[in-house]
Design a protein around this nucleic acid. Structure first.
Lengths: 64, 64
DNA sequence: TAAAATAGAGCATTATAGTGCACTTTGATG
DNA sequence: CATCAAAGTGCACTATAATGCTCTATTTTA
């Protein structure tokens, strides 16, 4: 998701690293599916990518 | 947010800890605003709480 | 195809998240 | 007030996320 967004914006991992102040190595791991990023780092990335992390109540069947 | 949701479900931190397999201490820190949880832990919590983490494209003013 | 740019991976180190334990604080109840 | 339950905090230790460096692989381009 992050990766797709980054690519659609035509930004390299390196550029993203600089813009977000998240280490390049970290972004690489993260994008290659090996990460368990902290919320903080995740937010730094989504912030630069113009994405928003939201929490929504999962609508369950018995919810209505 | 997590805290509010937990309370609205009338679940104690302790119960949440057990249900989610996240350490009680961790939940305490997290809820008292001192956390920088990993995505993994955050998901374990939201999962139990019936919440969903979503990423949406932030609509910017100059987007239209 | 050679060179350059971009992405992925191994290794080692540092910073910090996760956790348990014990104690304090706070709020509710008898 | 004494008691109890739920929440918050300090301390210490362990696990792992974050990071840099270097090298390899893949993709792009001349």
């Amino acid at each position: 998701m992050i990766k797709a967004r980054r690519e659609s914006l035509q930004v390299t991992q390196e550029a993203l690293a600089e813009l977000s102040s998240v280490g390049l190595r970290t972004i690489k791991q993260f994008e290659s599916g090996k990460g368990n990023p902290t919320l903080h780092n995740l937010q730094k990335l989504t912030d630069v990518l113009g994405l928003e992390i939201t929490l929504k109540v999962k609508s369950r069947s018995d919810n209505r």
